[in-house]
Simulated scan of single mutants.
Amino acid sequence: MERADTTYVVPPVVRAISLLRHVAAGNRCRNTSHTAKALGINRTTLIRLLATLEAEGIIEQIDEGGGYRLGTGLIALASEALNERSILQVARPFLKRLVDSLNLSAHLGVLEGREIVYLARETPNSHLASTVREGTRLPAHATTIGRILLAELPMASLRSLYAGQTLESFTSKTRTTLAGLEKQLHADRARGMSWSVANFEPEIGSAAVAVHDHQARAVGAINVTGHASIFADDSPHTERIERELKAAARAMSEALGYRGWSADQL
C-alpha cells in the first residue's frame, strides 16, 4: 500500500498519537496545563483524550496521583503487531532487494543447536545461483550464517555446545578446533558480520549479518553468496556488499521491533 495522503489525515488521531508518544517518553501528564502546552493542544481536548485512551486500556493511571503510563491494551496491540511480522514474512522483500542490487544469492537462516536451517532464499538469474533449498541444514561452525549467530552466544554457551564435539573440515580454511572457532567468532563479532572466501565450499564466498527482534535476540541471519573472487580482499565489491548487507539486516531488525543499535552501528 502507498503511504496515506496527508489530505486524509485526521487531526484528533494525530493528537492522540502525539499524546501516546509523550507518555511513552516518560511524561506522566500529572499537570494537564503543562502537558497541553507542551503538546500544543487545548487543555479540554487533552482531558478528553486522556479519558478516552484510559477507557480503551491504551493508558492507565498510576496510583496516588502518579499520572499516566502506557496500558496493557497498547502492550497487547504491540504484541499482536510483532507476532504478525515474523522473521520469515519480513525477510523476503529484503532478500529480493539484495539479489536485485548485488546480483548475488541471498538467504535467511536460523540456528538450531550446531546446525543452521535455511528458511528462505532468493537467487539471481545466473549460473552461479545458490542451490541451497529451504529446509537445508548445514554445520554452523563452517557457514557464515552459523558463525554470526554463534558469535551472539555467551562464551560459556558456545563451549558447552561444542564440548567434546569434532568440528568437521570442509576446506582448508574451515576452523576445526574450538579455540580456532572462538578466535574467528571474536573477529566476526568485532566486525558485525561474518565473511568467507571458500571457508565452506571451494570457489564460493559468502557474508552474513545477524537479525535481531524486539527483545534484542539474534533470531536469525541473512547472507549473500557468490563466486569467491567477489568476496576476496582485493575485490572492488567487498565494501558495497558489507554496506548493503548490514543495511538490510538493520532494516529487518527494525521491522521486527529492534531499537538497540549503538551509535557506531548507525
Rank of each mutant, 00 (worst) to 15 (best):
E152Y: 10
E242L: 04
I58D: 01
H214Q: 07
R133D: 01
I145E: 03
T238W: 09
V110R: 10
Q265G: 07
H212D: 02
Q184I: 09
H186L: 14
A16W: 00
G66N: 02
I58C: 04
H22D: 04
C29M: 13
V219P: 02
W261A: 02
E239N: 12
L108W: 05
S86M: 08
A78C: 12
D100T: 01
E80R: 15
E201D: 09
I59L: 09
H186V: 08
I241H: 04
L158V: 01
T177S: 00
L108I: 04
L39S: 01
P139L: 02
R250Q: 06
R217N: 00
G57C: 08
L77K: 12
C29K: 13
V211S: 04
S157W: 00
A208L: 01
P139E: 07
E239Y: 13
L181R: 14
V224P: 05
A25K: 15
T238A: 11
R137I: 09
H186E: 12
G40Y: 14
Q89S: 13
I241A: 03
E112T: 11
Y8D: 13
I17D: 11
G135S: 06
H186I: 05
G66D: 03
E56G: 06
L46E: 04
V224I: 08
L128E: 13
G57Q: 13
E152L: 03
R147F: 07
Y162I: 07
V9N: 05
W195E: 04
D233V: 10
P93R: 12
A156S: 14
D213M: 07
A156H: 10
P12M: 07
L20N: 02
